[in-house]
Amino acid sequence: MNVGSAGASSEPEVMVDINTTPLIDVMLVLLIMLIITIPIQLHSVNLDLPVGTPPASDIKPEIVKIDIDDKSTVYWQGVALADMGELETRLREIAARPVAPDLHLRPDKAARYAVVARVLADTKRLGLTKIGVIGSEQFVQ
């Protein structure tokens, strides 16, 4: 039964509500993508922690100074070395000791990177882990 004016058109009424079903579908897809792409927090960092008791504090460790000048010449305790083979020989000698000394590496900022990297690689390969880079304040401009 049609109530209204006799001249009213028979067109259906316009729906004013927004259809939210597609919006919810998009939201759920985005939520699933977010859950899938979040990395799982299972990353671990391997640390070489000291084992045993620390040495007595009154014993001063031996310090070996390795200098590299602006011409990329390597010095061992202030004495110039002939080549990198001599450096490796000396590093092997101190690596064989029961207590390895502390190494203080002091490169000049004009030294070639390859020479400094070679010294660091040799110490790492021979198992010398107590090494410090001295004089790094010269690199800050």
Rank of each mutant, 00 (worst) to 15 (best):
L120A: 15
L28C: 04
S44V: 14
H43E: 08
V79A: 11
A111T: 08
D70N: 13
I59P: 03
P39D: 02
T21E: 06
R90M: 12
T89E: 10
L103T: 12
V14R: 14
T21W: 02
G85I: 06
T20K: 09
I66H: 07
P39N: 00
K65G: 03
S44Y: 11
M33T: 04
V74P: 05
V99F: 01
T20C: 06
T20A: 07
A96K: 15
G85R: 14
E62D: 10
H43D: 08
D83W: 05
G52C: 10
S10E: 10
L42W: 08
I35S: 03
R97K: 15
S57F: 03
D102C: 02
Q41M: 10
I24M: 03
P55S: 07
H104Y: 13
S72C: 07
V79M: 09
R106T: 14
Y75F: 14
E11F: 12
P101L: 02
G52T: 11
A114I: 08
A82Q: 11
T123D: 05
D48V: 11
A80Y: 00
D48A: 12
V45H: 09
E93A: 14
L23M: 14
V64L: 13
P101R: 04
V74L: 06
M33C: 09
L30E: 00
Y113N: 11
L31F: 00
G52Q: 10
E62T: 12
T73F: 02
I94M: 13
A96C: 09
D67C: 04
S10N: 13
A114Q: 11
P107M: 06
L34R: 01
I32F: 04
R90F: 06
I59R: 15
D69V: 00
T20R: 12
N46C: 05
S44K: 15
A6N: 11
A111N: 04
D25T: 04
D48R: 13
H43I: 08
M84D: 12
A121D: 15
M15V: 15
E93Q: 14
P50K: 11
N19S: 06
A110H: 08
V14S: 06
E88H: 04
I18G: 01
I94H: 01
L103S: 05
L47A: 07
A80W: 01
A8V: 12
P61G: 12
L49Q: 09
D25H: 01
V29M: 05
N46H: 09
K109L: 07
L81V: 12
V119P: 01
P54H: 02
D48M: 09
P22Y: 01
A121N: 15
R92T: 11
